[in-house]
């Protein structure tokens, strides 16, 4: 079989984009107040239980595993966004020769899906529960929590701590820590192992010459599993689709529910998914803007661990 390399080389444009640090936006960020989940499909939870109940989400008649996008506002054409789910065509701004006839709102994201009734609170797109250090379910207004359960996807996520601009300081889940991409699983590393990052002191516990302390994603997961997190020892690096399930497309900087995922950096987070055709790259997701991009594996980036919630 002959495989022709595509002529169009994909370049990661990303660093250019991420340099734009200033937020300008025609749309105010939704206040991140925690709302009660609506009566349709409200999770039945027992706050006294130490087990985490994964309730079936019955927002729709089929078993749905996809989050909505969090977009509750409309886009005008050819530019600008609105506070509400409305949309206008600005005829004066159309490119020469272009005419638009018909409704540009009915098909838009905000007019469809379960978050269309979310109003001012994009959180209605997500069914998150705070989890404590031993895996216990916490109240929505708990001020301290270690993990978050997503009841739609059935995934439990690591919550980072101490985003103070300094690596480590003895806290394994430090929000500032950086890791290179490293994956010894030959069935899912794209044919190359990545970079184990022997020399950079970018994460908690690094010691030169001690591979188990190196700042790469695989060793990080191993260290968390050895110590245990939220009562579990089966933490892993998320696949790209799993990681993208956390993106709130309704906001940027950060593009995630910061009321639950506090201390999220406006940076890239690694997935464990290799890039087909590029052994030196892996997929990352920008939690500044929400998009996915192939990045070189020797980049130092953040990572957020995941585990699958196992129904008792």
């Amino acid at each position: 079989m002959c495989v022709i390399k595509t002529l169009k080389i994909r370049v990661a444009l990303v660093s250019v984009i991420t340099c734009l640090g200033l937020a300008f936006s025609g749309c105010s960020k939704h206040e991140a107040t925690v709302a009660e989940v609506g009566e349709d499909g409200a999770p039945q939870t027992d706050s006294t239980s130490t087990m985490v109940p994964l309730t079936k989400v019955e927002r729709t008649k089929h078993s749905r595993k996809l989050n909505d996008t969090g977009i509750t506002w409309g886009g005008n054409y050819p530019k600008d966004i609105n506070y509400e789910c409305t949309a206008l065509v600005n005829v004066d701004q159309l490119p020469d020769g272009e005419t638009v006839t018909g409704d540009i709102l009915a098909q838009q994201d905000c007019a469809n899906g379960w978050d269309k009734t979310a109003g001012e609170n994009g959180l209605a797109a997500y069914l998150y529960k705070k989890i404590g250090t031993k895996g216990e379910l916490l109240a929505d207004d708990a001020s301290s929590w270690s993990c978050v359960l997503d009841e739609v996807t059935g995934l439990v996520w690591e919550v980072k701590q101490d985003a103070d601009g300094e690596y480590g300081k003895g806290v394994l889940n430090d929000a500032d820590d950086l890791f290179m991409w490293y994956n010894s699983n030959i069935y899912n590393n794209g044919g190359a192992i990545g970079n184990w990052n022997s020399q950079f002191d970018q994460c908690a516990g690094y010691e030169a010459g001690k591979p188990t302390t190196y700042c790469n994603i695989e060793q990080f997961a191993a260290r968390v599993n050895e110590q245990g997190l939220c009562g579990a020892n089966d933490w892993r690096i998320p696949s790209r689709p799993e990681l993208e399930s956390l993106v709130n497309f309704g906001q940027t900087m950060p593009a995630i529910e910061n009321a639950y995922f506090r201390d999220t950096k406006n940076e890239f987070y690694w997935s464990n998914t290799p890039v087909a055709g590029f052994k030196g790259s892996a997929w990352a997701v920008s939690f500044q803007f929400g998009f996915s991009a192939p990045l070189p594996r020797d980049n130092s980036r953040h990572v957020r661990l995941v585990r699958s919630y196992v129904s008792q």
Partner: peptide, 20 residues
């Protein structure tokens, strides 16, 4: 169908050459 939040003259798409 999703408009983009930051650059308000952009909308989302998937590039099916690499899946981004």
């Amino acid at each position: 169908s999703s408009p983009y939040h930051f650059y308000t003259h952009y909308s989302w798409y998937v590039d099916f050459s690499n899946g981004a």
